[in-house]
Nucleic acid binder design. Structure first.
Lengths: 345, 345
DNA sequence: TCCTAGCGTGAAAGCGCATTCAGAAAGCGC
DNA sequence: GCGCTTTCTGAATGCGCTTTCACGCTAGGA
C-alpha cells in the first residue's frame, strides 16, 4: 500500500505556510487559531485531498474510535438483526464498527480478539459466544482480561459463566417456558425438540426453559426426543429428517432457532407432512423471514436490533471499577399458523 | 482506553534482558536471532500478555492487514452471502475485514470510505454501490482517487460508470434476459415488474435485460407496468399492493430482487391470490431462503459467495499500473414452483 | 597466527501526529 | 510610552514499533 507517499500533515502545513502544530490545531479545532490561518490550512488540506493517518493519531494519543463485533456468522439473520442495532448505536456514538465471523471456530474467535486488542479497539462485543467448555473459557479469559486491564471495554450478548463482563441476555429460558405453556394450552402433550450444539448456553437455556414450561402441565420431555444438529437451516433439515426416519409420535416440534425451523419445515414438506395439519412446528428468535414462510411460523420474538443497541450502549458507557451489569431482554411468544390447537389424546 | 499503561515491546525487551531491536526481531521472525534469546523474548511476551500495538506497527511501516467492505445493509441476505465469500477469502489472505452498512445513504458511504482511508486500509471493497448520479459520482471519485494514488486497492461488485476500479459484475442484463426467455417460453405474454430505485445500475440493467429478453418473443414492457419501490421486502410488498390496487392484467410478475419478491408474495397471499395458479412470480439473486418459501421461488441464481471471494481476490492481487479488470459472473435461471406454463391467450 | 567474511546484536532514526513549552505578538492599564 | 497579561504560534518531544547502520563477535582461509 505504499506506492506513492501519502499526503501528510507536514505537506499541508508547508502548502499553507504555517507550522505543523498550527495545521494540526486548525484541522482539529481544539485550540483557537487565527481565522485566516485556519482558512489557509483548510484550503490546503482540501486541495491536497489530505486524510489524517488514523494510526499516527492513535499513536499520538488520539481517541480510538473503533469497536469490534465478533459473532458466529454475519449472514445468519439472527446476527444480522443484532448487528443492525449495533451499527445504529455505533453510528450515533461516532464509532466505526468492525464485524467478524468466526464460523463457530473457537480458534478463530481467539484470533479475532487478539487482532482487536492489537488495534486497541475501544470495545469488543461478543455476540452469541458462550460455549460451556473449560479450556475454551480459559483461552478466552487469557485474551479478554489483559484487554480489560488495559482499559478495553467488553460486552456480550448471551450468558457467560466465567467472564467478568457486561452482558445483554435474552431471556431464553423464560421465553422457551412461555412457548411451552402456549403449546400445552393448545392441547399438545407429546413433543420433540430440534436442538443446536448442547455446548452452547443458548441451546441449554432454551431446552431447560422448554422443559420447565412443559413440566407445569405435567408433560415430560425425554432425552430421546431431543435431536442435536448444526445450528443452521441444513442442521434443522437433517434433524427433522432423522426424526422422520426414526418415527416419532410428537404432535409438535420445537426447533430452538427459527433458522433450524426453516430447515425442518422444508424436510416436512419434502416428506409430505403438512404443517400444522399433520404436525405443529415452533421456532425461536422471530427473524424477519419467518413471517413470510408458509405457514408463518409460531415463535418467540426477540427484539434483535434492540439487543444490538443495548450491548453497544453497555460497551460505550463508562463503567470502570463497577461490577458487571446484566440487562435482561424478554421474548414474547408470537402465535402464527404453524401451530394449531389439537384435541387432547 | 488508557486506564493503565499498555505492555509495550520495551517492557518485553527489558524483561528478557535484550535490546528492543532484538525483541522485535524475535517476535516477528524476520531475521535470525540466537535461539536462547528468542526463547527468552517469547517467554517474556507470553508472561506479560504482550500484544503489539497495531497502530505503531502500521506507522513504522509494517503491513496494513485490514480491508474494508462497504455495502448497503449487511442484514440483507444478498450482501450477507457476498460478505461470507469476502470473509472466507480474507481469512485465507490473513486479512481482517471491516464491514459497514450505509443503509443506502450516499453521505454515509463517503464517510466510511474516508474512515477507511484514514485507517490506511489495504483495500476497500464496494459492494452493490453504483448510483447513476453525477454529483455522487464526483464525491465518490474525490475519495477513491486519492486513496488509489496512495496505493490503496479498490474493487467493486457491480458496475461503475466513472470509477477506474477492478470489478466483479454479475451479468444482470443477460440473466434477466434469460429469465424473460424462460417466462415467454412458458407462454406468458403480459408482465409487470417490481423495480428498486431506478438510480441503481443493478436495477437499470435487470430491467433492460428483461425487456430485451421479452422483445425476442415480440413482447413489450410498458413503462406503466414497472412499479418502483424501496429495495426491501416491504418495498416489494408495497409495489405489489399498488399493482393489485390499480388492477393489472399481467400473468407474471418479475421482482428485480428476491427480497422484493418475498414482499410481493406476502402481498399476493394477503390479497387472496395464489401463486402460481393465479399469477406467476419470479425474482433475482437466489438468496438461500427462497427455496423455503411456499411456493419456492423461480429466480436467477447468482453465485453470491463466489462473488465475494472474487472481489476480495481482485483487491488482494497486485495490479499496479495495469488497467482495471472486469470479472463477469453469469447467473442461471432456476425454475421452481412460483411460475407455471400457461396457455397463450 | 593474522586478516577477512559473515552472522547477530544494539543504538538510533523515523513513521505522522498531538501536545507541551517557551517565546512572539497584541492588547490593556497606568 | 512602559510593563504587564493574554493570545496565538512554532519548535521540539514522544507515542510504540520496524528498520537501517555500524560494530563486535566467531569462523574460515591464507
Amino acid at each position: 500500500m505504499d506506492d506513492r507517499p501519502h499526503v501528510t500533515l507536514e505537506d499541508v502545513a508547508r502548502e499553507a505556510q504555517v507550522s505543523l502544530a498550527t495545521a494540526s490545531r486548525a484541522l482539529n479545532g481544539t485550540t483557537k487559531v487565527r481565522s485566516d490561518l485556519r482558512e489557509r490550512v483548510l484550503a490546503a488540506a482540501e486541495q491536497l485531498a489530505y486524510t489524517p493517518n488514523a494510526h499516527a493519531q492513535a499513536l499520538a494519543g488520539g481517541a480510538h474510535r473503533t469497536v469490534g463485533v465478533i459473532c458466529h456468522d454475519v449472514s445468519d439473520p439472527y446476527f444480522a438483526g443484532i448487528s443492525r442495532g449495533v451499527m445504529r448505536a455505533a453510528d450515533e456514538a461516532g464509532l466505526l464498527v468492525m464485524l467478524a465471523s468466526t464460523f463457530r471456530d473457537p480458534q478463530r474467535e481467539i484470533a479475532y480478539i487478539s487482532m482487536l486488542r492489537a488495534q486497541r479497539a475501544s470495545a469488543i462485543l461478543l455476540v452469541g459466544s458462550g460455549f460451556e467448555d473449560r479450556e475454551w473459557e480459559r483461552a478466552l479469559a487469557a485474551e479478554i482480561e489483559p484487554y480489560q486491564r488495559g482499559g478495553g471495554q467488553v460486552a456480550v450478548v448471551s450468558r457467560h459463566r466465567t467472564l467478568r463482563v457486561d452482558s445483554v441476555q435474552p431471556e431464553n429460558r423464560e421465553g422457551a417456558a412461555q412457548l411451552a405453556r402456549t403449546l400445552t394450552a393448545q392441547g399438545h402433550r407429546r413433543f420433540a425438540v430440534l436442538a443446536g450444539p448442547r455446548a452452547l448456553t443458548t441451546v441449554v437455556d432454551r431446552i431447560r426453559g422448554f422443559r420447565e414450561g412443559l413440566a407445569e402441565a405435567g408433560v415430560e420431555l425425554a432425552e430421546h426426543d431431543i435431536v442435536e444438529a448444526a445450528f443452521t437451516r441444513d442442521g434443522g433439515h437433517a434433524a427433522m429428517s432423522e426424526l422422520l426416519a426414526r418415527g416419532f409420535d410428537a404432535t409438535c416440534v420445537f426447533a430452538v432457532t427459527d433458522v433450524m425451523a426453516m430447515g425442518a419445515l422444508a424436510a416436512l414438506r419434502e416428506a409430505g407432512r403438512s404443517v400444522p395439519e399433520d404436525i405443529s412446528l415452533a421456532g425461536f428468535d422471530d427473524i424477519p423471514v419467518v413471517r413470510d414462510l408458509a405457514p408463518p411460523l409460531t415463535t418467540v420474538a426477540l427484539p434483535l436490533e434492540e439487543l444490538g443497541e443495548k450491548v453497544m450502549e453497555l460497551a460505550v458507557r463508562d463503567n470502570r471499577g463497577k461490577r458487571s451489569r446484566i440487562l435482561r431482554m424478554p421474548g414474547t411468544v408470537v402465535v402464527r399458523e404453524s401451530t394449531r390447537p389439537i384435541a387432547d389424546t
